[in-house]
């Protein structure tokens, strides 16, 4: 099929950037979105042009590197799907597809579609860890955890840190990401030691990174490729408020 791609090109952090239109012929239905970009880049290189920079790594929906804002939606129109798992069969011959980087003050563009997501790393280093020594790998059922909590923690843990929640939110709020990380550890026994500090420190770091205030619109949940529930935000708020009351 033949498509028209309208892609954001930006030389570096300081460049103003703008859209460039690429007619894209011979796209196969089986290609994933980044595979189509690979083909486009090969063609650009053959013509002696600068290839389009875009993030990707695992290409199987688990690393959280890929991050394209496709036709107005983070990771494109397909629910619960990362950019790398979005296949071209979801588009029609003749479509024009607009591809932009995540846009948020907390995620400055480095080049083309690549953004700097180190704000998430700094939020993680502020509290997204446990420092209790849990010993070497134990027998599966050594630490009793209610199934409900284990499932809920696992759901939260499936966050891949892609940043689509920030990208799709009208307030560029990072609440869903932080909520997933705080939730996951708050539900497990290993996370109890730093439970209160974690909520306080991660929120503090989040606020300092230039993400906006959550107004519970629900866009994050709708565009999250791992379908992290917005209810984790309720838990983050609870953790934060309790920590403040008790500390």
């Amino acid at each position: 099929m033949n498509l028209t791609l309208k892609v954001w090109r930006q030389k570096n952090k300081y460049d103003k950037g703008g859209f460039v239109i690429y007619p894209m012929e011979g796209v196969s239905h089986e290609m994933s979105f980044p595979e189509m970009f690979d083909v486009l880049n090969e063609r650009l290189i053959a013509k002696g042009e600068e290839p389009i920079a875009f993030d990707h790594d695992c290409r199987e929906g688990i690393c959280g590197m890929c991050s394209m804002f496709i036709n107005g939606r983070a990771h494109g129109p397909q629910k619960g799907t990362t950019t790398c798992q979005l296949h071209m069969r979801h588009f029609k011959d003749g479509d024009t597809i607009v591809v932009e980087p995540w846009r948020a003050k907390g995620f400055p563009v480095i080049k083309d579609l690549v953004i700097d997501r180190s704000a998430f790393d700094r939020i993680m280093s502020a509290g997204g860890f446990i420092s209790a020594n849990t010993g070497s790998a134990q027998d599966a059922n050594n630490i009793p955890i209610p199934k409900k909590n284990a499932d809920e923690a696992f759901d939260a843990a499936s966050c891949i840190g892609c940043g689509a929640c920030v990208a799709s939110c009208k307030n560029s709020s990072a609440m869903l990401f932080v909520a997933a990380k705080v939730s996951q550890l708050a539900l497990l026994p290993q996370g109890q030691v730093e439970r209160r500090d974690r909520a306080i420190n991660m929120v503090k770091q989040m606020d300092g990174e230039g993400f906006g205030n959550c107004t519970n619109t629900g866009s994050c949940e709708a565009d999250c490729p791992k379908q992290i529930s917005i209810l984790h935000i309720a838990r983050l708020n609870r953790e934060y408020l309790m920590a403040n009351i008790l500390e």
């Binding site: 846009r103 948020a104 003050k105 799709s168 307030n171 230039g210 993400f211 866009s219």
Partner: peptide
């Protein structure tokens, strides 16, 4: 929080 705006932003579909 979003100094550069999206040129296509289908926020209506998500909220």
């Amino acid at each position: 929080v979003r100094p550069v705006k999206y040129s296509v932003y289908k926020v209506k579909e998500t909220s």
